[in-house]
């Protein structure tokens, strides 16, 4: 964990409401695990006081990226950050995903929940021995199709689909669901997951998911039914992000746990909904 000043390299809109910010900071980027998050001070305290938590979207040892949706004042302020400005950030925080079996991963993203999953997908792909040479998708012929992580992206409409290209580029298979059917499967991404699981032999699969609570709960149910492990990334309101204030707890079978410290990634079967 570090507190560091990160230089803004880029801060661009990727959809109408979502932005990607690229930050230069070795301390935050090095050693970051997929599923971990950053606490970002979005201004000097005059407009908003507390830091805002964001999952790590990408990290390469030098820079880190955040993919964020504008939902309120803090995220709105963040959109105004210009390249060259500095942000005070704490991280990397929390316990991320543990990659169980890279050979058949299913990543399920709901809305802005794609944010930490791209970083995860890249890590999973990087651990596939055959993929070391074939990251651009072309040279990947030697790779078995079953080894590609399967990414299910759910969005309200076609326009809100995030990171489809990026996942494909990093060597994943991608399926889309939209609530209105404007692209891909019509319906919830959890329904799409059910469909996928019913068509493949999923005994060796592992599910990794991030998205709204009801979606994660549903994924927990599905995973249980198919007897496959599922790791889910939870969100709760956080004040400190480092386990001190006890503001972000979740009920688990082993008692209350702090989302910011023992999480944000939990095994779905642990959670008492």
């Amino acid at each position: 964990m570090f507190q560091a000043k990160a230089k803004v390299i880029k801060n661009i809109a990727v959809t109408q409401k979502c932005y990607k910010i690229v930050l230069l900071c070795h301390a935050l980027s090095k050693g970051a695990q997929p599923g971990q998050f950053l606490m970002v001070k979005v201004d000097n305290g005059s407009e908003v006081l507390l830091r805002r938590p964001f999952g790590i979207h990408a990290a390469n040892g030098r820079s880190a990226e955040i993919l964020y949706e504008v939902v309120g004042r803090g995220t709105e302020i963040l959109t105004r950050k210009k390249p060259g400005e500095y942000l005070d950030i704490i991280g990397p925080l929390g316990k991320g995903f543990s990659i169980l079996d890279p050979r058949s991963s299913i990543l399920v993203a709901g809305g802005i929940g794609v944010a930490p999953l791209l970083f995860l997908a890249e890590e999973i792909v990087a651990r596939l021995p055959v993929c070391r040479t074939g990251r651009d998708g072309q040279a990947g012929q030697s790779r078995k199709v079953t080894s590609k992580p399967l990414v299910l992206i759910g969005a309200k409409t076609k326009k809100q689909i995030l990171c489809e290209k990026e996942f494909k580029k990093s060597g994943c298979e991608v399926e889309i669901s939209t609530d209105d059917g404007s692209k891909g499967f019509k319906g919830k991404v959890s329904e799409l997951l059910k469909r996928e699981l019913s068509t493949v032999n999923c005994q060796q699969s592992a599910i990794y998911a991030c998205g709204p609570k009801p979606m994660l709960q549903e994924i927990g149910r599905i995973a249980k039914k198919y007897k496959i492990p599922a790791q889910i990334s939870l969100e709760e309101h956080m004040a400190c992000g480092i386990g001190a204030c006890l503001g972000c707890v979740v009920k688990t079978k082993q008692g209350l746990k702090r989302v910011c410290k023992e999480g944000p990634v939990f095994s779905a079967e642990e959670i008492i909904w």
Partner: peptide
Amino acid sequence: MPRTCETPQGMLNSI
């Protein structure tokens, strides 16, 4: 939960 929220120049907590 929820146990905290931000308010103008402050926060609420009910841990």
